[in-house]
Design a protein around this nucleic acid. Sequence first.
DNA 1: ATAAGTGTTCGACCATTTCGAACGATGATC
DNA 2: GATCATCGTTCGAAATGGTCGAACACTTAT
Lengths: 261, 261
Amino acid sequence: MNETRSDAAEGDVDTVRTAETLFDVVQRLTENDGATLAELAEELDYAKSTVHRHLQTLEQLGYVVQRDDGYHVGLRFLEVGVTARSSFRGYDLVRQKVEEIAEATGERAQFFVEEHGKAVYLARAAGDQAVRTDPGLGSRIPLYAASAGKAILAELPEPELFDMLERMSFEPVTDHTITDPDELRAEIEAGRERGYFFNREESLRGTHAVGVAICGPDGEVIGGLSVTGPSHRLTGERFESELPDLLLGAANELELNIAHS
Amino acid sequence: MNETRSDAAEGDVDTVRTAETLFDVVQRLTENDGATLAELAEELDYAKSTVHRHLQTLEQLGYVVQRDDGYHVGLRFLEVGVTARSSFRGYDLVRQKVEEIAEATGERAQFFVEEHGKAVYLARAAGDQAVRTDPGLGSRIPLYAASAGKAILAELPEPELFDMLERMSFEPVTDHTITDPDELRAEIEAGRERGYFFNREESLRGTHAVGVAICGPDGEVIGGLSVTGPSHRLTGERFESELPDLLLGAANELELNIAHS
DNA sequence: ATAAGTGTTCGACCATTTCGAACGATGATC
DNA sequence: GATCATCGTTCGAAATGGTCGAACACTTAT
């Protein structure tokens, strides 16, 4: 099929170096919120003056805040991130549906989209527990380790799917994670027939999940919806039939609503 | 050439120019999601190649995504923004409380924090309407135009308050917005006695609000909590006594819970 | 008073960003 | 099926601007 691809595989295309150091600072700041200038310079191995200049720039632009206890990432990231989130079609509708599903099943429901070959959490709701904030909002897991991720993969057009599988590194998340491309391929095929996908302790030990894809009016995949719970509770009929049916119904309704929005 | 360095706070401190152009791109991308390279270069008045390089860098770092219909801001902003949000003490507790208040009052409840001299939405919940997403999450309004903003100002130590008032530009949001520093000062004093603050169509026509401050265990202000609603519904006893009491109770409880967390 | 911890400034070196024009790829129009 | 319009991409030359390290200023603890 394709052959002229190898050259772009690893070559760092020409890139703005300064931006890398800038986001290094941001990155370190998220991992070590409230860090001081000296700490950051030390950890990043840049000159203090360099880090200082970047922090000052970031602060002036609103992306960093300096308080008495050190530097913090600013809420402008949240502002931008929220617009990024709402740029997904039907996000509001999906969010409501996620909460409905959580309530109906008593389990945790979540919605992912694909970005840069990973599954990114966009919404999550818990059935039983008090309404807790979404801790991992925006966090990423490999597509092949999530039921919703597999559902997304299965809806991709063949060439894109091929590319994506090519680029995957298949690092295990748990000892049940699929690490064989052929095995993943087979599961995608199987799930395509059924319309729903499973995750048996592949992303978290002791946790099962069922997932389905959400597609837009033109057939393009928007994201994936899944229900997660303890493996002892997600089993048998409920796991293999009831929850899938519920999800398929939800997906269907969602897709209709999205198409008419 | 010699620089006349006005040692006041006015001068542009030395700043990473490249970062400015980079965030110019990001900014434009949030305002015009899905823009093409040519559009961005045109609107920003940079060379196409320059914008291209920045976009490529941003994409490689995960902060921008290129889809068939153009470039989009990436969800990494959301990821970073969420950590910024949860770096505020007691955010989870506050969020729950906001939802409780919305449910109890049937009106809209919201939580702000101060950043860069503005009030930033961190949480919002609506009582009546279906659970809708927070549209303006991360968005900013002037402190002096929000009841919760005034509450925050009133809790600041005098020197900081002074500085902040100095820097304020007092641009009106509606025709009821306070634009006179002395008037604001007076309202802050008055509210300090009472413990709560009002907003009478100062941020949105036809809308009233009551707000209180939330403080941490050391007396430092964390943010402000407020209830908003149509001015015809927020009036009389309910507006000037019931809601304030409710909010003061909520703040009190919150502060206790936060102190013990 | 001293010391250790902040953040801040400065000038010289040289890395790197910027620009514009030309290229290649894709899709629309006639 | 050829031509035009648009899109993203590449390239080298010129100068803009980022990096470094040492020294400064400031606050708090010893």
